[in-house]
Design a protein around this nucleic acid. Structure first.
Lengths: 150, 150
DNA sequence: TTAAAAAATAGAATCAGTACAAATTTTTAT
DNA sequence: ATAAAAATTTGTACTGATTCTATTTTTTAA
């Protein structure tokens, strides 16, 4: 029951292409690179981070494309788009609803495992709920330890 | 078990002043008006709405003051600040953690009663959680009905 | 191969939110 | 009550994330 520590997972180019195709998305170079990136990095990157990391590899990449592509992925269920940070959107390659923790000190966003039960309690009489987001904000372990040392 | 329908609650000027004083906040004219407004209107207003509604009554009011004051209230536990709308912050006079539903069609934000049990599950080993936010997004009852009619 | 459609790009525009310094109001101490 | 100090408010300018628009490139289909 502990939170993610920026583990990484590798994904081959072919796997990325196959997933996009299966969703009916034309696997262009920027799209494959962006999908691969968010699947391999669990740091909950914002658009700028994705853009900066991929620029060397896809030199013609534009930030607009990163915005458009990530938004499309979120709408199609290939990733999730979080509004946990009040200043900017961040993305998570894991599209399954799960809780997040944002540290107000360092700004990092962590995954928090959630009882599945909670996710199923999504029925709200009258309305039709399509997404659920559970966010915590506070001070992360790493920042708590730093504070203690001072 | 239904959601809020923009019910209103009245609060006297004196009640607002007393609450602010109890928190050690100097009850100036803008502050009292802003506090009273968010306690009386359960529409989850953004800064612009608060500003626009209070301008006639407090003609010298500035938007900066609304921003600063609402942020201070949120930090001091006198209201909550929600990032449920990806475009702007909205505020809720009810500072107690409870779930919210945002309609993607009309943009309205509704309160959703939550099992208290869920709110107590706030312990995340290692980290120190200070806030919890549970958001749903989808289509609200009113917009569903409109769609059916078409 | 070529025309049409789809995707990507660059740069401008937008707009919520913040920083800051000046002006005003409130509080404090005499 | 009054002057000085502190706190608050204000307006303007600024920042920076996101979106818009027009153009270029790539892909698709005939």
């Amino acid at each position: 029951m502990h939170c993610n520590h920026y583990r990484e997972r590798t994904m081959t180019e072919q796997q990325a292409i196959d997933t996009l195709k299966a969703k009916g998305i034309c696997p262009t170079r920027p799209r494959v690179a962006i999908y691969k990136y968010i699947q391999e990095h669990f740091t909950h990157p914002n658009v700028d981070e994705v853009f900066t990391h991929l620029s060397p590899e896809v030199p013609t990449l534009s930030k607009t494309t990163v915005y458009n592509t990530l938004r499309m992925y979120a709408e199609m269920g290939l990733c999730s788009m979080l509004t946990i940070n009040e200043r900017q959107l961040v993305f998570d390659g894991n599209a399954k609803s799960h809780a997040h923790f944002m540290c107000k000190v360092c700004g990092r966003v962590y995954d928090v495992p959630t009882a599945d039960k909670m996710l199923e309690e999504m029925h709200i009489p009258g309305h039709r709920a399509e997404e659920m987001h559970l966010y915590y904000r506070g001070t992360c372990q790493s920042c708590l330890l730093k504070q203690e040392r001072m």
